[in-house]
Amino acid sequence: MTLFYVFAGVAVVTSLLVIAQRNPIYSVLLLVASFGALSGLYVLLDAPFVAAIQIIIYAGAIMVLFLFVVMLLNAPHEDTEYDERTHPLARPGPTRAGSLLAVALVVELVWALTRAGEAPSPFPEAGLSSIAAIGRALFTEYAFPFEVTSILILVAMVGAVVLARRDERARK
């Protein structure tokens, strides 16, 4: 019980800080912390496999990629027509409209959740979901989507190389 609130608190606070941070390096690191908290929540939900791949793939690979790009571009500051010293969340103009949209979203989600009505029931008793069961479902029932994702990754890989490569002809 307490663990849930600890992890949930860490996840919410770090996520808020991610979008409130000026320096993208800190944003990336705070997001890693948020992923760690989510991984803890997955353990509480008896999903150790998801918890592990959350750390291995999200925190260990995708976020390192982000960190890499931030370090390579070395452009930590947001350049807008506004004063650098005003906090990104306190700037006028489009920001206000964005905040309004965000507030609308929160209200809507809370409204939808309260309408669900039914008394919240605790989770049914169930053992740890076994990795064998996940594997079996993944390679039988979900075999086709699984193959499609492998093609997706291949396409993304080729696309990333093509996009990020310097144009050799342009330089000559």
């Binding site: 919410v12 979008i19 993208p24 990336v28 997001l31 995708i62 790009v69 905040s99 989600l109």
Partner: peptide, 26 residues
């Protein structure tokens, strides 16, 4: 829902491509 709203807020409010991508991850 809270986390999703935070992510959406990031996309709406921030003007930095990398932070926007991070918000999408949230």
């Amino acid at each position: 829902a809270l986390l999703f709203s935070i992510g959406a807020t990031g996309v709406f409010v921030r003007r930095n491509l990398i932070t926007i991508l991070l918000s999408i991850e949230i």
